[in-house]
Design a protein around this nucleic acid. Sequence first.
DNA 1: TGTACATCAGTGAACGCGCGTTCACTGATGTAC
DNA 2: TGTACATCAGTGAACGCGCGTTCACTGATGTAC
Lengths: 191, 191
Amino acid sequence: MSTSGKTAYHHGDLRAALLSAAMEMLEGGEPFSLRAVARRAGVSPTAPYRHFKDRDALESALAAEGFRDLLDGLGGGRGLPASLPDLAEFAVAYVAFALRRPALFRVMFGKPCDGADDERVKAADALHQLLADALDRVFPDADAEALASAGWGLAHGLACLYLDGKLRAASDEEVAGRVRGAFLALVSVGA
Amino acid sequence: MSTSGKTAYHHGDLRAALLSAAMEMLEGGEPFSLRAVARRAGVSPTAPYRHFKDRDALESALAAEGFRDLLDGLGGGRGLPASLPDLAEFAVAYVAFALRRPALFRVMFGKPCDGADDERVKAADALHQLLADALDRVFPDADAEALASAGWGLAHGLACLYLDGKLRAASDEEVAGRVRGAFLALVSVGA
DNA sequence: TGTACATCAGTGAACGCGCGTTCACTGATGTAC
DNA sequence: TGTACATCAGTGAACGCGCGTTCACTGATGTAC
């Protein structure tokens, strides 16, 4: 189980190992529980309590990691969007993230943020801020706050609806096309 | 427990009683389970199996009822929207529904529709259709399909984000105002 | 450099819990004659 | 109108399950002298 030369007993970095085990389970569609995560990490059911206060703390850490990944996926490489089509790609990337990692997405958004978890709240706020910056850049004259909420809402809503099968599409490419189309249709309808 | 003159043994309409007990529990924020619903209906844990194949079937019936209620709330009284401000009120009503009945909303949208449950799928599709009709009425020249998805996505996304505390507002009125503002900001940004 | 000891990160047995579901059952209902 | 009987809608005991969490513990690590 230990990849380095560490003995089995003292794991080395169990916290990280638990998080990545949990992440793998989420991505594999396996049901997620403290015990199952411990099992997968090859460690006794109670070992995680050395690193996480309780089950919720693990889940929150996972969610925070998810937010950071999403943020990277949106901002990283691409840079801030400078045009309307760029913004549409933001929405496309957001939805693609949700479909690629559905269980993680549900953990991130499925329940109210625990106010006590700073890391998680911060990560979510950073996401909001990124969207606000992006929209402000493309539409400097508009109400940035309202627009950022709307943009986030649109991307997030489409993500949820596709994720839950309320909207259907045959392939990931078709989803992307439809998201792009929906975004552009709504933005240009007032013109 | 039986409000009519029926004996306790033969309940009369246990199916309906179970559904309304379940609905009350959802609205009261109580955790939802087959056993708990039976308990609340004053009936043995196994009685529900006379009326529902399993736990999922109960949940699906609940979701279908939720969709019908939401549809009523949007269409009922108000009539089809005929203008942009009317559409904004649609979004406001949608979000208000989610905030008023959060647990029900989660049951409706929290997991992929079971394709086998016709009633539920039909109810969800009817909602989509209503939105498409509404948008088509206000914007007859636009791509109705794309616009309907966008409109639904926007309303749904805002609902989820407020529900999960990712967007915050001090009161229901403030939520309504922000939803209205977000909708109008996005629609008019291209102008 | 070697040793004593405190600290730290695991173990493993045990707890109580509520859940979904099965089973054989029984009491109430309604229908055929 | 009265009775026999099939059907239907409940009961209640029991099952196995996995969960989160606690507890006292022990083996490994690193530090002070």
